[in-house]
Design a protein around this nucleic acid. Structure first.
Lengths: 187, 187
DNA sequence: TTGCATTGAGAACGAACGTTCTCTACTATG
DNA sequence: CATAGTAGAGAACGTTCGTTCTCAATGCAA
């Protein structure tokens, strides 16, 4: 078994557990047994729990960004690509494992106590805002539109997480449609 | 010193500490010394930490709701009352102590592990949605507007918290204006 | 086969936490 | 003044957690 396979299995398992129960609620022993590795191997791959947390955040960022972009690229027009953001959210919210945005959650849990985590969450959200900004630019929208759509997406995530339903995705999508049509030059 | 004074002081202190550092990062001893009470008194007033957490959530709900309504009631027209929600957020985000919505944070921290906390966060958000719904009804808006505005407000909170700026309040307010004007019968 | 390096299982350790207990000092009443 | 009850300070307890250590088992080279 490859070394990087072990790393990946640890990170993927930790991602699932941290998402399901919260980071602080999952001990190293639970992670160890869920990932099927020895404690020695765990600490051979990662020097500490917080380094696993950071690796999980990187993993989350990558898979979330890729999933979003995959959905967005299926849309044909710039306008539809902006709306596709909310289609991606809708699919995400319907998953049983959905428990809210992992970056919002980790920021809430550890942001006040771990500058690394807070900074990574900030960067993730910043990268999302830039992504929306690029899509909006391609749609010929004014600069103020992208932050508005990003805020809608953020709100949909927390609303869906706490309410336990996926309604917020559709509601945010409809709001986005109004905002986009108000911002785009009529054509 | 009145018994209820002690309770209140404990709750207020716990609210501040939990907000600043996260619930799990604040131990009973830190709370005890910050509130200036003995451990015996602490456990005389509350049977456990989780009961303090629930009392803090109730306190947060009440002060947040009252603060919001106070700002909203200063506005004269129904439309301005809807927009006043975002003025309240703007003022809140500028406070040094602002670290995001306490209900989102406590849900992220404990929601997966404590059904009480998850349920209380759900109820708080539900109550906010109903509040927005009443304001929207008074403005003569269609039913779909209120959830849209609520999602904007949620998104502004998490965006402001993670980004560390208060920009999101103004951005959300402008989006709200567009949504309101699109939804309200022209007059 | 013998000896050495590596690995896994889990015991052990130190710290932190929630909670309870002990002991001392003080207060109030007879 | 004497005494019973109360309250505060903090020691103590049991548990959990992150991390390290021990030791036996395994695989491999000579």
């Amino acid at each position: 078994m490859d070394i990087s396979e072990v790393r990946e299995r640890i990170v993927v398992t930790a991602d699932e557990l941290y998402n399901a129960k919260g980071i602080q609620a999952v001990g190293m022993d639970e992670l160890r047994s869920a990932a099927g590795v020895s404690l020695k191997k765990l600490y051979g791959e990662f020097p500490s729990k917080s380094s696993i947390v950071m690796a999980v955040l990187e993993h989350r960022h990558q898979s979330w960004t890729e999933g979003l972009d995959a959905t967005v690229q299926q849309a044909r027009t710039p306008r539809d690509r902006l709306l596709a953001i909310f289609d991606y959210l809708a699919g995400w919210f319907c998953q049983d494992s959905f428990r809210g945005c992992g970056f919002i959650n980790s920021f809430a849990e550890l942001g006040a106590v771990s500058p690394e985590v807070a900074e990574y969450a900030r960067k993730h959200k910043e990268s999302f805002q830039e992504y929306v900004g690029r899509l909006a630019l391609e749609a010929g929208a004014p600069a103020y539109l992208a932050p508005q759509l990003a805020i809608l997406a953020e709100g949909a995530q927390t609303t869906a997480a706490i309410a336990g339903t996926s309604d917020a995705a559709g509601q945010a999508r409809q709001a986005a449609e109004v905002l986009i049509d108000a911002a785009l030059p009529a054509d």
